[in-house]
């Protein structure tokens, strides 16, 4: 059964079009919802928060957006078990909203994606995200192979996972680190991490496994023409590479 996916656009979001496009190309019934239409959000079955600089990333990336009325619907939905995927700025917003890792209360974040290290600059770099949990631990990744490698682009200034020691321990113990940065051959080490992220973390999942926050952008490496050197099949317009994750998400939404 095809269920409806809302792709949220806050003021300052900049990746909404390609996010809608890849969800549709993977069989999802996705629509864009602008910030002035927040009241429509409740009727959707799943939410995707795409990349950008929502509310200009004032204070801290995602901090203001987490208070946006649009997030009321997302928080309600997440608590009711709807699937939520946040990408880059969307991931930052989910952390600021306290939905991920979800070890504290709503809108009381216990961890943040914050300024890159060693240099606090924007970094645009191709990466691989390696699935670091049992695929079934998170509904959204259930369609992936164990240890799946997803190609994506890191493109952010604030992508380093940071949290007080006790919260980091909780993140590890609760199996919240869904993705880590990896080399193309799957190896994991500091050289693969573009931003100094704690635990090499590229993505976090909540306790219930229905909310996933990832920093890199798989939707920017999601069609054969984005990666001609490693195309799968002859059709340059066909989804591949980063599309794997969106297919798994759409399949989970449509169950």
């Amino acid at each position: 059964m095809s269920r409806r996916i809302a792709v949220l656009a806050f003021p300052g979001t900049n990746s909404e079009d390609e996010t809608v496009r890849i969800l549709r190309d993977c069989g999802g019934d996705a629509e864009l919802v602008w910030w002035s239409q927040a009241e429509q959000l409740a009727q959707y079955d799943a939410y995707v928060l795409s990349g950008g600089f929502a509310h200009e990333d004032r204070v801290r990336a995602g901090a203001i957006a987490a208070l946006d009325p649009m997030m009321d619907a997302v928080i309600d939905g997440a608590c009711a078990g709807k699937l939520v995927l946040g990408i880059c700025n969307g991931a930052q917003i989910l952390l600021e909203a306290g939905l991920v890792p979800g070890t504290g209360a709503v809108r009381q974040p216990t961890a943040a994606f914050t300024k890159n290290l060693p240099a606090p600059h924007f970094v645009c770099r191709h990466v691989r995200m390696r699935l670091a949990i049992d695929p079934a631990r998170c509904v959204i990744t259930a369609g992936l192979e164990p240890g799946a490698l997803i190609p994506a682009w890191a493109a952010h200034t604030e992508g380093r996972l940071a949290a007080p020691r006790e919260h980091l321990d909780e993140i590890v113990a609760g199996g919240h680190v869904a993705f880590v940065y990896a080399h193309p051959d799957g190896r994991v080490d500091d050289g693969a991490v573009p931003n100094g992220s704690a635990l090499g973390c590229a993505g976090l999942v909540n306790r219930a496994g229905n909310v996933l926050a990832i920093m890199p952008h798989p939707e920017r490496d999601a069609w054969n023409f984005n990666h001609l050197a490693r195309s799968e099949g002859d059709d340059v317009l066909a989804p591949s590479g980063g599309a794997l994750l969106f297919r798994s998400f759409v399949d989970a939404v449509n169950v």
Partner: peptide, 26 residues
């Protein structure tokens, strides 16, 4: 230098900065 620029937003980049003599978009 160009690592500070987003070369792939919009998802239509075929050759981003640094991967050829010219950038290519679809």
């Amino acid at each position: 230098l160009y690592r500070r620029y987003d070369s792939v937003v919009r998802g239509s980049t075929v050759l981003p900065r640094g991967s050829g003599d010219a950038g290519v978009l679809a």
